[in-house]
Amino acid sequence: MSLEQDRWTGVGLDRQVQAASSNPVILDGQALALWRGEDGPVRVWEDRCPHRGMRLSFGFVRGDTLRCIYHGWAYRTDGQCVEIPAHPDLAPPKTICANSYPAESRYGIVWTNLSGAGSAALPDFGADEGWEPVRSIYVDRPASVVREALHSFDFGDVSEVRMNGGSAALVRVRSGLEILFAVQPVSDGKTALHAVAKGQGVAGRRADLARRLERLRATIERA
């Protein structure tokens, strides 16, 4: 049984996870591998091959399987091991299974829930359409400090900041722009923020928004 809180947390921008890649992410001190097959959605797994503990974020993708770099063991998208190259004629036992977590893509952000139950609802900020990825930033401060800073930072005439259970914040700017932040606690003193935005002319404002996020990080780390 997992002792993790039943909560969805954004762990990356969907667009950042390239096809046929596996990538390391840390959430609440837990090492995760975010990987995507040659097509299809992003998967969130424990970053540990059940065979000899090698990090699966070092793995390589072939078709719809993630292979561990150490011995080439292949895992299907549901986590089941389907091939052990040391024994080409052996059907791997059902017990050999990578530990996977729920993964959902919404608003261009990949969300996961480390609690086994996973009955909590995904953060809801309306329709999924129209969100443009801005960027992720990594701040050397605890998540509580970063959440607080989202309330006071000057995004340019903020009309409203809405938190969603601590893992997401929606910032509404009067010019009609909405910025959604997923707050990912990495460790006690480190937080990742994944930002997407929506509104008129948002595509053309991406560079400007990205610069603002840089300033946001600098402001938080200076305080």
Partner: peptide
């Protein structure tokens, strides 16, 4: 906790 296969007999 870590699952071996036949090739891991020595381990």
């Amino acid at each position: 906790y870590e699952l071996p296969t036949r090739a891991d007999a020595s381990s």
